[in-house]
Write a protein that binds this DNA or RNA. Structure first.
Lengths: 142, 142
DNA sequence: CGTAAAATCTATAGTAACTATAGGTATAGG
DNA sequence: CCTATACCTATAGTTACTATAGATTTTACG
């Protein structure tokens, strides 16, 4: 019998976040003590770990919801899980590209900036000048 | 005299987003036609480009607000702008590390998964098993 | 057993950065 | 002049939490 605080500590999740996961139907509704406090079993801990691990891997809660549904029905084909992971990998690659470009530009901003007045500050100049950056207006992926 | 739509097209911003920037005080309040429509000057376009560029570089709207304030007072020292950029670089480096680890794990999931039934699907297995991942419970940076 | 601190409870609101919708008005082109 | 397109406001929704207030429960100690 685990309290919500124990679950939180073991998975690095905030207590509120666990309640939130229950509210949106990601975590099962747990039993309660006579006083109304939630008590969990080990399988709840496993489920929460699965969710948190998925989040760390960048999966959205919806993707995780799908993956959990798959994991709950072990007789299906795993093509779905595979396709979710592949979609994720594509997104990760795009984010990596953007971040690398960003890092380069930030470094340029910083190393170039040895001035004293804002008037000729490279940091601001780089922001003013769009010419060096990704030309397409793609989404600013979070 | 530019319409809001033109500004939007030229910067790859949604019209609503421009109005939102005005609402939160990032964009100046523009003049209006007799009919009540917003009309902009080139300096508004510049300001919006600056904002969007900052966003593409991963700066938060608050950071951009600070940078705009600096850019508006060209007599100050640029140490502030520099420190904002440096903070940003640190964050970017952290995100890069996480994303690289993530990519590795996603690839492992995908290449290992040649099964047919969910029962032995590597994708789900990897999610179940936390042992290979970042051990600390750090924030799932967006 | 009594008490006090720590943990838990619910409900609600706030965060970031937009995005979408509904219902109505303005403007530009033919 | 008419109509299609663009624009207007106001409000609500999105994602994934996080924070707060005020009340109740549980646990640990003496």
């Amino acid at each position: 019998m685990l309290t919500i605080g124990t679950l939180a500590r073991k998975t690095g999740t905030k207590v509120q976040t666990i309640r939130y996961y229950e509210q949106i139907g990601l975590m099962h509704v747990p039993g309660r003590t006579s006083g109304g406090q939630r008590r969990y079993y080990d399988h709840d801990l496993d489920r929460l770990s699965f969710i948190r691990h998925g989040r760390q891997l960048g999966f959205s809660l919806n993707a995780i919801r799908e993956l959990l549904a798959l994991a709950d029905n072990p007789k299906q084909s795993c093509a779905n899980a595979d396709s979710i992971a592949r979609k994720q990998l594509l997104q990760v690659d795009q984010r990596l590209l953007r971040l690398k470009a960003l890092k380069k530009e930030l470094k340029r901003m910083i190393t170039d900036c040895e001035c004293n007045r804002v008037a000729d500050c490279k940091v601001l100049e780089v922001l003013r000048d769009h010419s060096n950056c990704l030309t397409d207006h793609e989404a600013i992926g979070a």
